[in-house]
């Protein structure tokens, strides 16, 4: 059983293992960084650290939306890189059995731009397992528009480690 943070983008629920999550915060706005890619909202300060904020909505190909009181920032850590993900909602943590993990259907995988690497059915809820490395990886965006990759490539050095 592994504890996962559950969050939602446009009412689709995703899950991330807490192992890759440092903490969660309310989103009170990001400082826009000129030249940053479109899915990067800017930078925020969390517990004294300056973190880039990836708009997961835009990352999964959805249009941006104004922040609400429910908007959260999930501070993730992947291989020493700390990146903040901006999601629409994140209110719970849940234990998921790795054995109950199911592969994402091809169509779903295609639709979610290859960012989901599995799914869990909890009751009637369906939690998509976010492939964080792919979300944060620049290779994961091969099929993204060139500009995005360029931007990402271009801005990556700007992101804090």
């Amino acid at each position: 059983m592994t504890l996962h943070v559950v969050f939602a983008i446009a009412d689709v629920e995703y899950a991330l293992p807490v192992a890759s999550v440092l903490q969660m915060e309310s989103f009170t706005g990001a400082t826009a960084v000129p030249g940053a890619p479109a899915y990067v909202l800017g930078i925020v300060t969390v517990r004294g650290r300056v973190l880039p904020v990836v708009d997961l909505r835009r990352r999964v190909g959805l249009p941006p939306s104004a922040p609400t009181p429910d908007t959260r920032i999930i501070v993730t850590e992947l291989e020493g890189r700390v990146v903040a993900l901006c999601v629409d909602r994140a209110r719970e943590v849940i234990d998921l059995d790795a054995a109950a993990r199911q592969p994402a259907p091809d169509l779903v995988n295609e639709r979610s731009a290859g960012l989901v690497h599995g799914m869990h059915a909890v009751g009637k809820r369906l939690l998509l397992l976010l492939d964080l490395p792919r979300v944060l990886s620049e290779h994961a965006h091969d099929h993204e528009p060139r500009a995005l990759l360029d931007d990402e490539t271009h801005h990556r050095p700007a992101l804090p480690g």
Partner: peptide
Amino acid sequence: INMIADRTNLLSLNASIEAAR
């Protein structure tokens, strides 16, 4: 109240994360 609840939720989530870690 909502704000407080949100805040509490956030705190509890962070606590859970910290505990898990």
